[in-house]
Design a protein around this nucleic acid. Structure first.
Length: 403
RNA sequence: GUGAGAUUAGCUCAGUUGGUUAGAGCACUGGUUUGUGGUGCCGGGGGUCGCGGGUUCGAAUCCCGUAUCUCACCCCA
């Protein structure tokens, strides 16, 4: 027997119900916010991700499904969605067109990681990207949209917020931090030694207690923002306050992708195990020009669909459609004909086997049909059909032509 | 990539110190003699016990390898 690859799941039955329920809910909300659907390829040039996500990140460094195709191109399955959307935005020359462009997407992403709950090698994200607005109001709008989606699905969350600064304040802060950490280098863990080289900000996020003790007096990002970033962050907090969106400031929140600046946020849940982030996003004002486009401010987020599916409680499914069955062999031909006509307007399920009434009622109940319609010898003789409303428990016999 | 635990019927799980044809509930299916479901009664099918080796007279049970899942590290959605 051939099984699916590690970390790659089939989605069917109840999982698929929840999956589409999420997509439909999120799509509806994104459209209400004025966003348009965009589909980009699953396969892209490897260079796209190296330049956008960053070579120092784990995603690019060790988690990409990368290979050389038959035309000798270095390609990989997308590990995240933003880079492809930005590439499309530039390729379609929308950066030069100016104005505001808002997109949402959903689809499979691929990361070669060790799977566990809420972490798969092929997983799905729903994401949103907004181009052309540098106002922090758009950042707030992103957060409101995620919040609306989660609320619509009945999912509780905690929102963590940080500012990563911009080109004016981040580099200087990073140097300060590196200097500070170097001074206590003898006491830090080997992971932090590595982080110092690859992604220094991440040391603040270290879960090692002894490291954290050393970092207590380390310079804090939020206290070293330039006036612009600092004002924007204050404005963002005020907008969220005004709109009753609760948040926590987490000065150690560092997004794993290199392209983020200023606003960074993460929605987390306590109910899905150690992979607690259900949505994450932020501003990436430099990415468009970094990928050879005209400088364009941008902000976006992505939601991890499989992680959310752990939390989604489906609304009670209502009785719907018809079940049609025959109690005599001679009625089967009639039943399939009736079903064919009925399907023009209603969901209709039929059973090709003749059964007694009790079996038909049980079968109709099981598939959650609203009506159970049955033809037996009496009905054949009279040219009628017997129908029971399974919800109201009412029944009637009508002429076949009225069915 | 590192470490730990798990894997028995479609699903959730029992299975005693290694000992006959490996069990239960749910699900599926047939009957209950053609007429009332979601909560009746009686019956039935379905497992090379994840896979491959080894120890043994004998392995679901012990040992080794391997795959997958789960948890932790790492990282992230």
């Amino acid at each position: 027997m051939i099984n699916s690859l590690r970390g790659m799941n089939d989605i069917l039955s109840e999982d698929y119900e929840r999956f589409t329920y999420f997509i439909n809910t999120a799509t509806e909300i994104a459209q209400k916010y004025g966003f348009h659907f965009i589909e980009t390829p699953l396969l892209e040039e490897t260079a796209l991700f190296k330049r956008s996500v960053g070579e120092s990140s784990d995603i690019v460094g060790k988690e990409m499904y990368q290979f050389i195709d038959k035309g000798e191109n270095d390609v990989c399955l997308r590990p995240e969605g933003t880079a492809g959307v930005v590439r499309a935005f530039i390729q379609k020359k929308l950066d030069k067109a100016g104005g505001i462009h808002r997109y949402f997407y959903h689809g499979a992403m691929f990361r070669y990681e060790r799977p566990q709950k809420g972490r798969l090698r092929q997983f799905h994200q729903f994401g949103v990207e907004s181009f052309g607005i540098d106002s922090v109001y758009e950042d707030a709008t992103m957060i409101m949209m995620v919040s609306d989606i989660l609320k619509a699905l009945g999912i509780g969350y905690r929102l963590q917020l940080n500012s990563l600064g911009d080109i004016n304040c981040m580099p200087a802060y990073k140097e300060n931090l590196i200097d500070y950490v170097r001074k206590c280098k003898d006491g830090i863990c080997i992971d932090c030694v590595r982080r110092l080289e690859t992604n220094p900000i991440r040391v603040l996020d270290c879960k090692n207690g002894s490291c954290q003790e050393l970092y207590v007096d380390a310079p804090k990002l939020l206290q070293n923002l330039c006036p612009t970033c600092s004002n924007d962050f204050d404005t963002l907090k005020k907008i969220l306050d005004d709109n009753s969106i609760d948040y926590e400031i987490d000065t150690n929140l560092v997004r794993g992708l290199d392209y983020y600046s200023k606003t960074a946020f993460e929605f987390i849940s306590n109910d899905i195990g150690s992979q607690s982030a259900i949505a994450g996003g932020g501003r990436y004002d430099k990415l468009v020009e970094f990928l050879d486009g005209r400088p364009t401010p941008a902000v976006g987020f992505a939601i991890g669909i499989e992680r959310l599916m752990e939390l989604i409680v489906m609304p009670e499914s209502l009785r719907n459609g018809y079940y049609i069955g025959a109690m005599d062999d001679e009625a089967v031909d009639l039943v399939i004909k009736l079903a064919h006509a009925k399907r023009k307007t209603d969901k209709t399920t039929i059973d090709y086997k003749t059964k007694n009434l009790q079996k038909h009622l049980k079968a109709a109940d099981k598939i959650n049909a609203k009506y159970c319609a049955v033809i037996g010898s009496n009905e054949i003789k009279d040219g009628t059909i017997w129908i029971k409303n399974l919800k109201e428990k009412t029944e009637k016999i009508i002429e076949l032509k009225e069915f």
